[in-house]
Design a protein around this nucleic acid. Structure first.
Lengths: 199, 199
DNA sequence: ATTGAAACGGATCTAGC
DNA sequence: GCTAGATCCGTTTCAAT
C-alpha cells in the first residue's frame, strides 16, 4: 500500500529519545498491524485499529515521513533460495581504534550474505550472522572476504542447526496502549431503526 | 501492492531443494527488488526487471502462492520505539531431549522481545537475540520469562554496543543471473525500416 | 500455452467541509 | 477531524503469437 511518498528533508520529528510519550495508541496499533502485513488495505487497517481510513492514512504518512516506518519489504523464504545455513561469527580485531572499526564495517556492509553485524561488548569485537547455502560457500566467504579485511585477528564460527524463530516485528508491549483497538472511532451514521438497517 | 491473494492448498511447487535451477532470472530480479521495497508499483517493477507489468504480476502471484514470497512487512526504526538495546543470550538446557526442546521453543515463540532464536551446535543449545529498551527491562525478561522455563540450566548474555548492519534482504548472488535486467522483454512494435527486422 | 495490452473495479490520496 | 470525489494502480479479461 501507499506508492509514492516523497520523504522530504525532515526526519524524526517524533521518534528517538522518549517515544513512549510520543507515540499515541493509534500509531502503536498501526505499527503493530503493518509489521505483520503491510499489504493490508486502508479499510481493513482502519477497522482493526478502530479508526477511520483517513486517520490511518494520515498517520501512516506521518510515520513514514518521520522515519518511524522506514520502508516495506517482501519477506522471502530462505529455503526457497537454498539458504539453509546460518552461521554466527565472532570476530576479533587486532586494534580497536576508530579507523580499524570503520574499515571493517565498510567491508562488511557490502557483503550480501552478512545479514546482521553487531559491535559487541565482552570477548569478541563483532558478532555477525551470515547466511549461506552450505559450508563450502561459508568457507569461501571466510577466505575470500572476511580474512582479507585488514586487522582481523581471530574468527570463531558457530553453526545453527535450526532457525527456531525469526521475526522482523519489534515488540510494542513496553509502549503500553496496545489491545485490539480502544474503540475510539468510526461511529455509524444512523442509529437503530433508521433507513438502512444493514443485517 | 497486491491486496488479496487466496493462498490455496498448494505450497512450494517451485522452491525448496534445488532452487538455482528452478528460479529463473525474472523471479530472481523480482525477489531482489521486492526485498528492497515492496511498495514499488508494477510499472516501476516491470521497467527495473526488464519485463512487462503483466509478466511481473503473474510471476509475483506465483511466487506468493508457492510461498517463496511469504508476505510483506513494514520495517520499523527500533530507536523510534525506544528499543536500542540488543542482547544475545546463549541458553543451555539441562537435557536436550525432544520434549525439553519443544517446551523451550514454545515458550520462546510467545515472547515478542525475542526476535530470533537458533538451535546451535557447540557450547550452548540456543542462541537468542532479544531487543529491549534498557538493562532493567532485560533483567525482567530473564527473571520473569527465561528462567521460568523448565529445564533451563545456564544463561550467558552478551550485549551489543551498536547495530552495525541489519538487513532483511537475503542474498541472491549465489543464484547466478542477477544483473540490472537481461533486457529480454517488451520489444517495441515497429522496428526501424522493414516490418519485422529481428536484428 | 504463453505473453502483452487494454478495460475494469477498487483502492489510495486529496481537497473540501 | 470526517466525507466525498478525482485519480491511480492492481487485477482481470481478451486477443495475438
Amino acid at each position: 500500500m501507499c506508492r509514492r511518498f516523497g520523504i522530504p528533508v525532515r526526519r524524526s520529528v517524533i521518534s528517538r529519545k522518549n517515544p513512549s510519550t510520543e507515540l499515541d495508541p493509534l500509531s502503536i496499533r498501526l505499527i503493530e498491524l503493518m509489521q505483520k502485513d503491510s499489504d493490508i488495505g486502508l479499510a481493513e487497517l482502519a477497522e482493526a485499529a478502530g479508526a477511520t481510513p483517513s486517520s490511518c492514512w494520515r498517520r501512516l504518512d506521518e510515520l513514514r515521513k518521520t522515519g518511524v516506518i522506514q520502508r516495506s519489504v517482501a519477506v522471502i523464504d530462505p529455503a526457497a533460495l537454498g539458504l539453509t545455513v546460518n552461521v554466527f561469527v565472532q570476530v576479533t580485531l587486532e586494534k580497536q581504534n576508530e579507523a580499524a572499526l570503520r574499515a571493517f564495517q565498510n567491508r562488511i556492509a557490502r557483503r550480501p550474505e552478512v545479514m546482521e553485524c553487531y559491535l559487541m561488548s565482552g570477548d569478541a569485537d563483532y558478532l555477525l550472522r551470515v547466511v549461506v547455502e552450505d559450508l563450502a560457500q561459508y568457507h569461501r566467504f571466510v577466505v575470500d572476504h572476511l580474512t582479507t579485511i585488514p586487522g582481523v585477528a581471530n574468527l570463531r564460527s558457530s553453526f545453527a542447526l535450526d532457525q527456531v524463530k525469526y521475526t522482523t516485528a519489534l515488540p510494542t508491549e513496553h509502549l503500553g496502549a496496545s489491545r485490539p483497538a480502544a474503540r475510539t472511532a468510526p461511529r455509524k451514521k444512523a442509529g437503530p431503526g433508521g433507513k438502512g438497517a444493514k443485517a
